[in-house]
Design a protein around this nucleic acid. Sequence first.
DNA 1: ATGTAATTGAGAATTAATCTCGATAATAAC
DNA 2: GTTATTATCGAGATTAATTCTCAATTACAT
Lengths: 150, 150
Amino acid sequence: MTSELQIFQDYIRQRGLRRTPEREEILREIFEVHGHFDVDGLYLQLKGKGSKVSKASIYRALPLFIDCGLIREVDFSDGHWHYEHIYGHADHNHLRCLGCGEIQEFEEPTLQLLEEQLAHKYHYQIKGHQLQVYGYCTACRLKDWGRQGV
Amino acid sequence: MTSELQIFQDYIRQRGLRRTPEREEILREIFEVHGHFDVDGLYLQLKGKGSKVSKASIYRALPLFIDCGLIREVDFSDGHWHYEHIYGHADHNHLRCLGCGEIQEFEEPTLQLLEEQLAHKYHYQIKGHQLQVYGYCTACRLKDWGRQGV
DNA sequence: ATGTAATTGAGAATTAATCTCGATAATAAC
DNA sequence: GTTATTATCGAGATTAATTCTCAATTACAT
């Protein structure tokens, strides 16, 4: 059994929830894919493999995976949530092109220090952060003559 | 005339758009309020003052204010966009309590350097960033016994 | 085996945001 | 000032992501 599944099942047991084939199917699919995903894409992928899992179940399962630290929400400011693996992946942030939507991932270890400073200064228990940097990639900068200050 | 209005009118003229009482009303209201706001709150405030401005007009005006650098979108992960002044305010980020929603603002000047590094490394023209740090404030940590790892 | 209560799928409901369209009004040209 | 052009307006319809409802199912404890 993969350790993602193990983590999830420990979480399930600990919370008095139930192991269901649907939840395992969804989790397995998520960890077979690399990179970001969203609800719609995940649903279509599962459907394409003959799965009968409903969107409602996906919407219900994702918060559990988030809660046990396997995945997290990512905001690409395009009207719906995206998600990505946390488990087994180095912490990273996203540089997004406002023109074409391309995503570059980058690491910024100093944010760990920032979290500790903030925890101390404001007496917070920090659970995480989201850093999105946005701008225009070279290709889009050359394309869009109309825009200002480019 | 306030300089926010001046900036907006320069922008309007430059783009061949039109000065309308609705847009000025909305802009004036935004800059009378301090702190964050959202479309619904802004609409109700205007309505409360007897304004006839429609929500559609607010939705249409905000992108203009964003485009000319007066305000920006802020993501509090609660299902809709929030906005805040940029003009006349130091760049800052948000520390949000997952329990009660309290927002602490903090400055982190090193992100300016990070932007420059990213611009160089990935050949991007950086337009801005969003950093949200989230966790639990002292009060919420004491309240929520049920949660884990608190 | 049985009881219970968590979970499911299907579709309705909700909600933020966008779009449509006829009416209005800001600007430019005369 | 008058007129023409067309951006902008308000109201309501539409879209799309997400959540909710509810009856049927099923995981788990006893």
